[in-house]
Simulated assay, not measured.
Amino acid sequence: MNMPQSVRLVDVGPRDGLQNESQAIAVTDKVRLVDDLSAAGIRHIEVGSFVSPKWVPQMAGSAEVFAAIKQHSGVSYSALTPNMKGLEAALEAGVREVAVFAAASEAFSQRNINCSIAESIERFAPVLEAAQKADVKVRGYISCVLGCPYQGEVPADQVASVARELHAMGCYEVSLGDTIGTGTPGVTRALIEAVAKHVPREQLAGHFHDTYGQALANIYASLLEGVSVFDSSVAGLGGCPYAKGATGNVATEDVLYMLNGMGIETGIDLDLLVNAGARINLVLGRENGSRVARAILAAR
C-alpha cells in the first residue's frame, strides 16, 4: 500500500471540541475560530451542529455562526444533523455539507441515543434522502470502532457492517471514530482492512482520540493502509467524557507537524494554526492541548 502524498484534515474543534465546554462561548468567538482555521488553510471545518439546545447547549448558536463566518471557496463548512429537524435547520442556514453518526457498539447506541444501531440507521434514511434532493453532501461518523466504554471490545465485522450501510445510503465518506482512544496501531490496521472490503479506502477517514496517547501512532498506521483523511481538533479541544481528566481529540497541530515531517502535503500553515489554537484557549482560559503548539509558543 502506497503512503498518501496529500492528506485532508477535518478540523472538528468548533463542534466536537467546543460542545463539551461548560462555560458559555460567544458566537463572535466561535466565528473567529472558524475564520482563523480557514485562514490557516484548513479545507474542511466542522462548524457546529443542529441538535436540541436542551441536550447540547453550546451548539445553540450554530445558525448565527454559519451566517457570520467568511466562507472561502474550496473549503467545506459542515454541520452535524442527527435527524430531519436538524437537517431542515441546517438547510435553512445554507449549510452545504452535513454529517450523521451511528455507533458500532450496541451498548453505546442504547445509552447515547436510546435505540439500537439498526434503528439509528433507519432514522437517517429520510435525512440522506432529503440532503441528496437538496444537493447537500453527507458524511457518516461511526463511534466506538476500537472499543466501547460499556461493552469493551467491538468486533471489526460489526464496524464494517455499519460502514457498509452508511456508504450504501449515500454517505460520500465514512469516518471511523476511536471514541475512547483505546485503539493501537495493529488493531487499527486490521480494522481498516476489514472495513475496506465494503467501503473503498479513499472514502474512509480516521477519527482518533488521544486518551491513551495512541492517536498519532494510529494515524500513522492508517496512512500505511492508504487512508488520507483525518479528523482532528485545533489545540486538542474537546475532553473525553468517558475517562476523567483524559484528553479527547487529537490536536490538529500535532498531526500537521507529523505530516509535514513526512513530506505529506496538507496546504495548512502551522504557524497560523498555532495562533488559532492559542486565541481560542485565551477565550476558554485553558492550557493548550497540543504539544507542538506548546513547544512553538514557548520558543517564540
Rank of each mutant, 00 (worst) to 15 (best):
V7W: 01
G17H: 13
E21M: 14
S22H: 15
S22F: 14
I25K: 07
T28C: 06
R32K: 15
G41C: 03
G41H: 01
I42E: 05
R43A: 12
G48E: 08
F50M: 14
F50W: 05
S52Q: 09
M59K: 15
S62N: 12
Q71W: 03
G74H: 12
S76P: 05
A79L: 04
L80S: 01
N83W: 09
N83G: 15
K85M: 07
A90Q: 05
L91C: 00
A102R: 04
A102L: 12
A103N: 04
S105T: 02
E106T: 09
A107Q: 13
C115S: 14
E119L: 07
A131Q: 06
A134Y: 07
V138L: 07
S143E: 00
C148V: 08
E153W: 02
M169H: 01
L176K: 03
D178T: 15
G183N: 07
P185Y: 02
T188Y: 05
V195F: 06
K197H: 07
V199H: 05
V199D: 00
E202W: 03
E202Y: 11
L204A: 11
H207I: 09
H209C: 04
H209D: 01
G213D: 03
A215G: 02
A215P: 01
L216W: 11
A217N: 03
N218D: 02
A221C: 11
G226K: 00
V229M: 11
V229N: 05
F230D: 09
S232A: 11
G239K: 10
A243N: 15
K244N: 12
G245R: 13
G263S: 11
L273I: 09
G277L: 00
R279D: 13
G285I: 12
G285R: 12
A293I: 01
A295R: 05
